[in-house]
């Protein structure tokens, strides 16, 4: 039981981090960013390159992932999403654009980083073993703590900084925010950059545990969408709740149901369908959007 709880906390914290960036972008721009998983993968590859290949300290490599993805996100918003949002009244235009970007990034990742699974040296050696009741390598514990700290920092940033307040205002009501003097174009770009940066950060953190390969993007996006659907699209606290719930469901399912084969995700998907039929807006989303 203790091991299931530990696995749940660990998985939940990393999933929540993945979902945060996606839900932020959705809240600000009403864009379903299908390329979120690819951004996560690029973040992982940047940390791999700097930390694993060039020997740069891990923290600096992580910072490079954040900066690279923030710049990439800002450029994508400014030159791709912003013109499409302005020029098209149809919401599916941004969805198609996001899907196109996902394919493009996949192709670029293959060209630049290759097809192989990549990994980096462990940041801490050793395994925490509490009488075989809880076994957890120290690097997982560290990454879990860093993920939780990052989530807290992000919440504080959104709650107390001027930029965070502007972003929240934008998420609540774009027109009202504009009327209150918020530069909508600028903050949309900052918000997208922040969402992409979060994807890069979690990619950089997790490359130390799971490694990285070009195929991870699509599945990561799907999981992120599931978390956002559970918690409520566009709600920060909902994304965190969705990530933690999915993490615990996975940890419990894998431990309890392993003897029946791989039915954990089957049950998670069935539960999600029933849940959405009853509460389509998710746990914390508003029924009106």
């Amino acid at each position: 039981m203790e091991q299931i709880l530990a696995n749940g906390v660990y998985l939940g914290s990393q999933y929540a981090m993945i979902a945060l960036g996606l839900t932020l972008i959705f809240a600000l721009m009403n864009v379903l960013n299908f390329a979120h998983g690819q951004m996560y993968v690029i973040g992982g590859f940047v940390t791999y390159t700097f930390y694993g290949q060039l020997g740069v300290p891990f923290v600096l490599a992580l910072l490079m992932s954040c900066i690279s993805l923030a710049i990439l996100g800002a450029l994508i918003e400014k030159f791709l999403f912003a013109p499409v949002i302005k020029g098209s009244k149809r919401e599916e235009s941004t969805m198609l654009l996001a899907a196109g970007i996902a394919f493009l990034l996949d192709a670029l990742i293959l060209l630049i980083f290759g097809e192989k699974q990549r990994g980096v040296p462990k940041i801490i050696d050793g395994v925490f073993n509490w009488d075989f009741r809880v076994i957890m390598p120290y690097d997982r514990i560290l990454i879990c703590v860093l993920a939780i700290l990052s989530i807290i920092c992000f919440i504080c940033f959104m709650q107390y900084s001027k930029t965070g307040r502007a972003l929240r205002a934008l998420a609540q009501d774009r027109t009202a925010a504009q009327l209150m003097g918020v530069n909508v174009d600028r903050y949309s770009m900052i918000g997208f950059a922040l969402g992409a940066m979060l994807a890069g950060l979690v990619g950089g953190l997790l490359v130390t545990i799971t490694g990285i390969n070009l195929g991870m993007g699509g599945p990561t996006s799907i999981k992120a969408f599931m978390m956002v659907m559970i918690g409520g699209a566009g709600v920060i606290s909902g994304a965190i709740a969705g990530g933690i719930i999915l993490g615990f469901m996975e940890a419990i399912g894998l431990a309890v149901l392993s003897q029946y084969g791989d039915i954990t995700y089957l049950l998670i998907f069935v539960s999600l369908m029933i849940f959405l039929a009853i509460r389509p807006q998710g746990l914390m989303g508003k029924p009106w959007g």
Binding site: L254, A255, D262
Partner: peptide, 18 residues
């Protein structure tokens, strides 16, 4: 012989524990 994992699994600790 019945433990399986999703193709997109990235963390195998929970999968391998049983």
């Amino acid at each position: 012989d019945n433990v399986t994992y999703q193709v997109d699994t990235t963390d195998f600790t929970p999968v391998l524990t049983p």
